[in-house]
């Protein structure tokens, strides 16, 4: 069962020592993400350059290890990328988490495939996705987002998270 490998050393390490954790003074994009089902929340701050490159990105918040490690690895991976590349990764990560993209398929996720195991734990999919969800909101100047909002493009409706 893939679940057994969800808490791999790389995830535990990012949970213990999250990268890009903290605030960002010169941020020009930011968003707050909430998962009302478990009370987890995190904020993401970005400095997006004029030519739409993520120059810097930080996150802060209170969450489980899966969410925190996902946020840490996400920030490390999208830093220096264009907004368009980040959006591609957001979509790919979401697809992987819900079983619509396999680690062997073509993608840009790199080591982020370590989160593939969440697809076996429907209640934990949202933990892994929340940072991506919030990143999408920040890039699109939506200041708050929720895993439970009906109009959210990242919303996983009941029955879809298989």
């Amino acid at each position: 069962m893939i679940t057994k490998s969800l808490y791999q050393e790389v995830i535990l390490d990012h949970n213990r020592n999250p990268r890009n954790y903290g605030s960002l003074d010169n941020a020009n994009r930011s968003a707050e993400g909430h998962n009302p089902l478990c009370g987890d929340h995190l904020s993401i701050k970005i400095n997006l350059s004029e030519n739409l490159i993520i120059d810097s990105i930080t996150f802060q918040g209170e969450s489980c290890a899966i969410c925190k490690a996902s946020a840490s690895m996400m920030t490390a991976n999208v830093k220096g990328k264009t907004q368009a590349d980040a959006e591609t990764m957001i979509k790919e990560f979401r697809d992987m988490a819900v079983g619509q993209l396999e680690p062997d398929d073509d993608h840009h996720l790199g080591r982020l495939t370590v989160f593939v195991g969440v697809r076996d734990l429907p209640t934990r999919v949202k933990c892994a996705i929340l940072p991506w969800h919030t990143l999408h909101a920040a890039l699109n100047s939506i200041t708050t987002t929720s895993t439970e909002a009906d109009d959210d493009p990242m919303h996983i409706s009941i029955g879809n998270a298989s």
């Binding site: 057994k4 969800l6 808490y7 089902l37 478990c38 489980c64 290890a65 899966i66 734990l121």
Partner: peptide, 26 residues
């Protein structure tokens, strides 16, 4: 140092069913 959801998932791997969350009593 451990979030309840991580506890719940890891205990589930031992066959133990517990509830994690705010228990509808925020």
């Amino acid at each position: 140092g451990v979030h309840p959801h991580d506890i719940g998932t890891l205990l589930n791997q031992e066959g133990i069913a517990v509830r994690t969350g705010h228990h509808c009593a925020q």
